[in-house]
Design a protein around this nucleic acid. Structure first.
Lengths: 349, 349
DNA sequence: TTGTACGCGTTATCAC
DNA sequence: GTGATAACGCGTACAA
């Protein structure tokens, strides 16, 4: 094995007696060559075992076809599913993804962004929520965020307000005496806040007794369990005898809460109705399949990439399109009815 | 806003009256400049608002610092967690990750690999299992696989055999009359097969009544549920009255199985002991927290990247180190005891 | 410690 | 249809 260096257009050119230019054209505009010559070159390619080098191409034409992604963490199924769906858009759009997992640390994520920029990514999708959108907007790259604070950047979000309304509405239709919403304190400019607002508005409009129960959820599993236990006890105390419709802000928490009930009673009593949010796997794998508001993650992901592609294309043409307002797209969630609202789970003992 | 093109070393050089080389050195070998000059340049950088361009650097020195990853899917928590842990190694090793989500389709994944190669990745981590390892080995790039068939490539795997032994052993210690292992049919050269083997060997050695129950698990949720239901009924029939120790090949399935039992009895009867595999979130979020064999995903990920980095460094030096045997690293799993083996879950009703 | 000159592999701009 | 030549932005002998 001699020390063969990489085969380049130059080598192919010599081998075929064409010029580099023609070789380049073979790849980028094959129709401009005669069929015979295409054949000659394609034969040469395999004869020489040519491997294309897109790095050089980038340097020459400036198009990296890279999209940078920063996810906050992947242990929440939501983000990993989203990431997965985003990656799948490669088939449609051809963009490659440089992915960073954020540490929920602003400084670190800032470095990640710098790194991405250094690789001349053409656009960025941000799932992480540490860096405020007005800072994101200051980087000179097209950006789309998903389900996070998005005042100054383009974004794609679930219609959380409608989702909450659907949830509350379903519970109401099941003749619940009181509607309870369990959530943590979310800033008003986060998309999640709409869940609280939607719930609240619905109850107000329909004059339904309700309470929003705030408790810390996001931290550790243990902490979250403890908090939900307290919440459960409080509910048992305060609303005994009433039929309770409980809308929990996420399926993971809904499942935890459901477990508390089932572990106490051995089943889901008739005076409890539960609905979660997200349609994450746990919702259907729970001891009693949990009704939920399904985020259409595939659509969210597709919309995000699709919107980003538009922005990137826009950028390649004009220089103006100057102070366009950020575009915010919205995806409608779907109501998924399962046993925690629909029917009496039949359980023994 | 004039049409400012990108600031390059040339611009900085002119601005500071240094040469391009000196600017380059400022970045790659700052110590070779006087402190004053460093200061001059660093001032110029912000004055001109310089953005580094790593693409050009790649072309010049050949080091992309890219690692390519192909994951089979991310809806299984296992893979997304692994991906997450791999991404986190950026902090330690500085490699950036180009990620593709495989479609379980050989042809498509082959294209992904070609694309990665075109971007001159320095190494590749393969989680997907569609492409056989001997083909992987034929690509001229350092490769490390994780938990998949790995005959011809370097790999990192959980010690599945030991994990299975631990599981069986725990069940045996709890005086189970019969040990049951639920799994799907896995090829003998897959790491997972060791779970079956470990279980079998343990039972043989200790002369314990046992059965390996094969059923299709990997497909859809519904299918999987159906199959497990059948399995459950069969077990109830065949092993009534005996104390059953059940080792399920994955936590997701263990949870499904546990739900079947609890939905029938309202609790986990004393003649059932269950242990899963993976320590995925579901195992502790289950109606009764499930004992499991914990894969140390963080370690697996770290070992994988670390090994890959070694391989990549090796490659940068010599040309020989020719036909080195593939290195296979192994990570020990940890036994995690929870309620499905340890104590009587207290349930009402 | 600093500068010169060339190379990395491709695309773009002209000209033929 | 095809070719020569100059970018693209940075690294790296080699020289000073």
């Amino acid at each position: 094995m001699a020390k063969k260096k990489n085969i380049t257009f130059n080598d192919i050119a010599k081998y075929t007696n064409f010029s580099k230019t023609t070789i380049s054209r073979y790849f980028n505009n094959p129709d401009s060559l005669t069929l015979e010559n295409q054949k000659i070159i394609s034969d040469a390619l395999i004869a020489l075992d040519y491997k294309e080098n897109k790095v050089a191409r980038i340097l020459a034409n400036g198009k990296t076809e890279f999209i940078g992604i920063i996810v906050p963490n992947i242990y929440l199924n939501y983000y990993s599913e989203m990431l997965s769906q985003i990656l799948l858009t490669y088939e449609e759009f051809g963009y490659k993804f440089l992915v960073f997992a954020g540490n929920e640390n602003e400084e670190i994520e800032r470095r990640y962004i710098q790194e991405l920029l250094a690789y001349k990514i053409e656009g960025m999708i941000i799932l992480s929520h540490t860096i405020p959108s007005h800072e994101l907007a200051s980087y000179q790259v097209p950006i789309v965020t998903i389900e996070r604070e998005d005042r100054y950047v383009c974004s794609v979000n679930t219609d959380n307000y409608m989702g909450a309304t659907q949830a509350a509405s379903l519970l109401a239709r099941h003749d619940c005496d009181v509607l309870l919403h369990i959530n943590s304190h979310v800033p008003e400019n986060w998309p999640d806040y709409e869940r609280i607002k939607g719930f609240q508005d619905f109850c107000l409009e329909h004059d339904i007794q309700n309470e929003i129960i705030y408790t810390e959820l996001g931290t550790s599993f243990e902490r979250c369990s403890q908090n939900l236990t307290s919440v459960f006890e409080r509910i048992e105390e305060n609303y005994g005898g009433q039929k309770k419709g409980i809308f929990v802000s996420g399926d993971t928490y809904a499942n935890l809460f459901l477990n508390l009930i089932v572990r106490k009673y051995g089943f889901l009593p008739d005076d409890y109705r539960i609905i979660g949010f997200d349609n994450s796997p746990i919702s259907r794998e729970a001891i009693i399949p949990i009704s939920t508001i399904g985020q259409q993650i595939d659509q969210l992901a597709h919309e995000a990439v699709s919107l980003l592609v538009e922005l990137m294309n826009e950028r390649k043409k004009r220089k103006p399109a100057p102070f366009a307002q950020p575009i915010h797209k919205v995806v409608t969630p779907v109501l998924i009815r399962r046993e925690t609202t629909e029917k009496e789970p039949a359980m023994g003992a």
